[in-house]
Design a protein around this nucleic acid. Structure first.
Lengths: 343, 343
DNA sequence: TGGTCGCGTGCAACCGGTTGCACGTCAAGT
DNA sequence: ACTTGACGTGCAACCGGTTGCACGCGACCA
């Protein structure tokens, strides 16, 4: 934990040099390339610097080296609970390398996103771009400008990227439901054109086909509570006894919708979410596919730091993080009779 | 929206000066004190600079002026939905002044918080500290070091602060419940020592006293879902027909707890939250006191910018934002018989 | 016509570090 | 004893702006 000394001016490299009886170059090297100096010198200068409370100035260092010691994490919406874990993990990992993190919120607006990226090019050494809403071509151009860029949950060939692979978790979910006796299930689609949605939908279809379970894919939905609520009726209309929703928000909405229609979960209908961002805050607690946002954030920063060190490094890297199912209480044995609205 | 030109090196002030046939000082002044130059000069240099795509370097400017053009917003936990609105509003407002914002997460840990504040002193021109977990004395010391600091939802005399005044909204809530016929209500306390909790608790007590309604104050709770769930039983044990919870998370937990006990909301028990961060995502949608986080963030930045401009300005400013009640569906007429656990 | 003043601009020092190059020293090699 | 080289350190230029001071010029006044 930091100490609070008075408010006196921060000492500069000159002061330290004078106090230690060496040149400023030596002090500088003590803090940047200590191995090039005699050990005794390093020890002495370090001691003097510590006594004086000297800390190298990021700004000055940045001016001569071109390294800001800062990276950015850009997300479409900090209020969306999927992102905080990735931000935190990124921040934590960056900090271990002495790098600060700034967080950018694009407000789900591609134009704002681009502006922000351009601004951040001058403010940071690199950026982690999460769930970008920009067209592939634009993302590729941004990456080509030379400023290190790592994508999370966006698959643009040629740009380093970390992807959460929902398929394994979804397959587990289908297996889990089939194991409980469900023979017909509905997939509540997310936003049209979303990479994650496509992935999840396909996984549901394939696994159901393999198990001989009927799968009904519902229309695309915005990933919001209201839409989930509306989706409840759509699910009931299909005659399915279980639903897998594109994300937890939608699933939570569906839970509310079922309650409104007087349909019991999980007694009459089972519901599965995706991302595991609501933890156990729903009623009943949601069975869901864990999104691994934290790990994605951490890995993205790791990759980014490598790129910052070596801007000529391999660009076309693609890491896939397999997801898995977390079983809670919103899923249960298939009912004897198919569920129906009661009000 | 930004344009993407190739990746060529950013031009410096020298290049612009040469191209415009003036000295670097003049170019510099065009971007910092244009009013001191002839209009024609400004126009000419501006034109040349634009053609070359010149943008002054934050870093270099920072080195000579000591202004970083960056502020920080520090929150205990970005994953807590109360904070994103304040962060967004702060970010948006700072941007209008050409200032970038960095977001710090202290993970609810006072030691981390202090470390972060010290680090940010060297990275930013000032910080907005939201819901600090540091002792008053420490906050005061941090403020005294001279780095501009504005508090949100923390009342430390001598340090500029923006406070959301929950009292008006709480009073409305009590009035609302009393109007529905409730004669006994419970207050589910938040974290011990929280300024907001004290404020809310006192408001409940006073208003109940004024209306002749019985108020039972429950033990302190961490503002988490589980605790809210547990609180449901405590509420039922008091015999109250309505509960006001310290925050929405707790209220949502209480909703789940009531459902577990087979107690209907709002038919048997009414529940009110605080902060309005869950919007209508609970079932039933939560009646709650609106927290005005966004406005607080915006005002905090406004105040902070003033302090950055004039570090000798008035320090002891205190702004109170009155809250108000948002009525949704978790409150209803008092039941004929007091509620009881059914399972 | 000479003196003053104010405006617009340039010179050069400065902000606080970093780093290529050169110099001095000392040990090993011949 | 002389060369060679490695090692440790200092000198000074540089990163890209900002700014106090001074200079030149034209307007204004007496």
């Amino acid at each position: 934990m930091a100490r609070l000394d008075g408010r006196r001016q921060a000492p500069t490299i000159k002061v330290v040099a004078a106090a230690a009886g060496v040149s400023t170059s030596t002090v500088s090297r003590v803090f940047s390339h200590p191995h090039r100096l005699k050990e005794s010198t390093v020890a002495h200068v370090t001691e003097v610097a510590a006594r004086l409370g000297y800390k190298p100035s990021h700004t000055a260092r940045a001016l001569s080296t071109g390294r800001l010691g800062m990276i950015a994490v850009v997300v479409p919406d900090i209020a969306n609970p999927f992102f905080p874990p990735v931000i935190r993990a990124a921040q934590a990992h960056a900090a271990t390398g002495g790098v600060s993190t700034v967080v950018g919120d694009t407000d789900e607006d591609p134009a704002k996103e681009l502006d922000l990226l351009v601004e951040l090019e001058r403010r940071t050494d690199g950026v982690v771009l999460v769930s970008s809403r920009l067209p592939d071509e634009t993302v590729r151009e941004v990456a080509r400008r030379g400023h290190p860029l790592v994508l999370v949950n966006r698959d643009v060939p040629g740009v380093p990227r970390i992807l959460v692979d929902s398929a394994p978790g979804i397959r587990e979910a289908v297996d889990h439901l089939a194991g409980l006796g469900h023979r017909h299930l509905a997939y509540v689609s997310g936003p049209a054109g979303s990479w994650s949605d496509e992935q999840r939908r396909d996984a549901v279809r394939e696994r159901c086909a393999a198990l001989g379970v009927t799968a009904t894919v519902l229309r695309p939905h915005r990933p919001e509570h209201d839409e989930g609520r509306a989706a409840a009726a759509e699910v009931l209309a299909t005659g399915a006894t279980a639903a897998i929703a594109f994300d937890d928000g939608l699933a939570q909405g569906a839970l509310a919708g079922m309650a409104e229609h007087g349909v019991a979960v999980p007694a009459e209908v089972s519901i599965v979410g995706c991302d595991d961002i609501l933890a156990a805050t729903t009623y009943p607690p949601l069975t869901t596919v864990h999104g691994r946002g934290g790990e994605a954030g951490r890995l993205a920063v790791e990759l980014l730091m490598e790129l910052v060190e070596d801007p000529e490094g391999e660009r076309d890297r693609r890491l896939l993080l397999p997801s898995h199912l977390v079983t809670r209480a919103s899923t249960g044995p298939a009912p004897a009779a198919p569920p129906a609205r009661r009000r």
